[in-house]
Design a protein around this nucleic acid. Sequence first.
DNA 1: ATGTGATGTCTACAAGCGTAGACTTGGAGG
DNA 2: CCTCCAAGTCTACGCTTGTAGACATCACAT
Lengths: 196, 196
Amino acid sequence: MAAGRKRDAAATRSAILASARRAFARSGYDGAGVREIAEGAGVTAMMVNRYFGSKERLFAAVIADVMAGPSILTPENLDAADLAARMAAILVDITKAGDTPLDGFLIMLYSASSERAADIGREEIERHYHRTLTAALPGDLAAERAGVLLAIVAGMQVMRQMIGLPALAGADPEVLRKLLEPVFAQLLSKPFQHKD
Amino acid sequence: MAAGRKRDAAATRSAILASARRAFARSGYDGAGVREIAEGAGVTAMMVNRYFGSKERLFAAVIADVMAGPSILTPENLDAADLAARMAAILVDITKAGDTPLDGFLIMLYSASSERAADIGREEIERHYHRTLTAALPGDLAAERAGVLLAIVAGMQVMRQMIGLPALAGADPEVLRKLLEPVFAQLLSKPFQHKD
DNA sequence: ATGTGATGTCTACAAGCGTAGACTTGGAGG
DNA sequence: CCTCCAAGTCTACGCTTGTAGACATCACAT
């Protein structure tokens, strides 16, 4: 058991949740073991099941916890005039290499090969990210444009953090921002019209 | 053993490779089991190790096989004037939902949570995709632009096929092409200059 | 036809997984 | 001080995994 804490149910629960978040972000749903998660929280494996019922329920709790945290799509960002620039800056910052406090998107990507985990992830992405972004986009094809935007965000996380493509993982953040901003601006642009 | 084939080493090897490709594309490196792969090829699990040495070596062989196949980055595509439109069209087609013959990119994404698999994947993406695309890009920051382009390709695969985001998975292909083409065009554009 | 080596199968092992139930220990209320 | 329930640990089961070695079987060359 962790030295600093003794028999505090709420604290133990938080410790397990935090450890699980780290573990899932590092190894994905399948890769992270219950014993490993428990050790990271300073308890035994059985406490995970005592507090969360099962590994699957723990994963769902982690995703819910992550979703409750800050994201690119905060209301003040969505209403800002320079949304494209903000999105680019935040995305580049979030996906910087090393032991970044990874956000939930990455956890879901790592876990997407597990069918159950992918289901949970799709549901949460849909509800939390896609719906919000779609609603904020003026013009035609808002849902599709929001989808492409999320795909770009996902792709940057994949390439910078999961694969670790050197050209992206080691790139100058300023350069990446300059590259991404016009891309975002194009998809976000207000007078988007479906012309054909 | 498969009914149609009898004691043909080359055919058995191909069958295992093909089955492994399907299995890895469906479940990722960790998710796909050797027994499952073997069954898909109509043999026993031990044949996998006999022909490929280990699961890890099998995975490397699958990636190599996939890389040898067709991709977006064929020379005639890279030289074409309408590269952006071609990339958009091919990407949308490749990532269409259902039991598509998935390309290697997706296998690597599914397997990225395994450290060894991610290493193999990064190496191959770097060598096969990123280097080729970088060389084909005129203007400044070719490596970074190529990286962002690959990230978008990866993101579309993730969102359409892994997560299955409805807005993308169920979208009209024509619409997606129209959305992606200007994005690609912007990153591919010849007179790209790093201005600051 | 008859060895003989390649081809494929069977059984099994050691390790790790998620999970369950019985057990022990701590800390607060009487 | 003593009790008692929550908090936490221990041991273990059943399963799956990748892999190893011994065994069987088919096809071809002599």
